[in-house]
Amino acid sequence: MKKLFKKLSLKKVLYAVLTFILALCLIFGSLITILRITFFNGSFLSDTLNSSQYYNDLCVEIAENLSDLGDASGLDKSFFEGFVSEVLVRDDVQSYITDFYEGNPLKVNTSNFDESLQNALKKYIKTNHIKNVNDESLEYFSAKASRIYSNSIKIKYFSAVQDIIVNNTGLLTSLIVVLALISAAICVILIVTNAWKHKALRYIYTALSSAGLFLLILPICVFASGVIGHIAIMSRSLSDMYISILSTVLSDMIVISIVLIVVAVAVWVIHTRVRKKSAV
């Protein structure tokens, strides 16, 4: 026991604490970086949606919801067949995302959709010689169809976090810089204050490797549990979108962890060389 306490000098304890803090800075810095390049980045969301089945699924869902509305309104099932244009949906969703990240009010412009609907209704009434037409009922129907379209374009729950994302994007960037500076400062302190440079490098290696392991274990556990695919969301398109985003975030964590581990191994190699040199 006495031997143990003799080994644990104040200097060693301080270095251990610095190493721990360095590891924490690396972990939080990595996580904040991932947040900054994903959730807080508009082009990330656009790219994710473009590369997934989101638009296709969304068009199918809109068509189904409108078809149900048509059933309740006396319209043939064929009325809404091919009605929803993927091009229009894509444009409207992109506008929504742009407004979201620019902090603009999140309103969907349904004028194109409304115009198409009115034209289709007029044609339907004329073709089928429908006489029992109540303007008020048709107006309710059109407004509801418009609302279905608008609600489908809006990405659910985004409105609740818009303020957080818009107001804190700059803060995240500052935090990344601050954490990077702190990490660099700790590395410098470790190297400068340690008589044995190879020991300083060993401390830095420990911080890098433990941070890398932390960032590796977390996503592996989440992927292995399969919990991402088990989130209960009513809409297939929304579910696919969130799964894509979460998968990308976790994959980014794995990539960063691998980078940290590779850098750690490089530092270890340097440490062994420096140690051999100082032994000579």
């Binding site: 869902e61 609600n151 489908s152 659910k156 989130i231 209960a232 969301i233 009513m234 929304l238």
Partner: peptide, 15 residues
């Protein structure tokens, strides 16, 4: 029980 996150604000589903 599971609460299913709604795609429509006016609909609630529990499974």
């Amino acid at each position: 029980l599971t609460a299913v996150a709604g795609s429509d604000e006016t609909r609630i589903k529990i499974t």
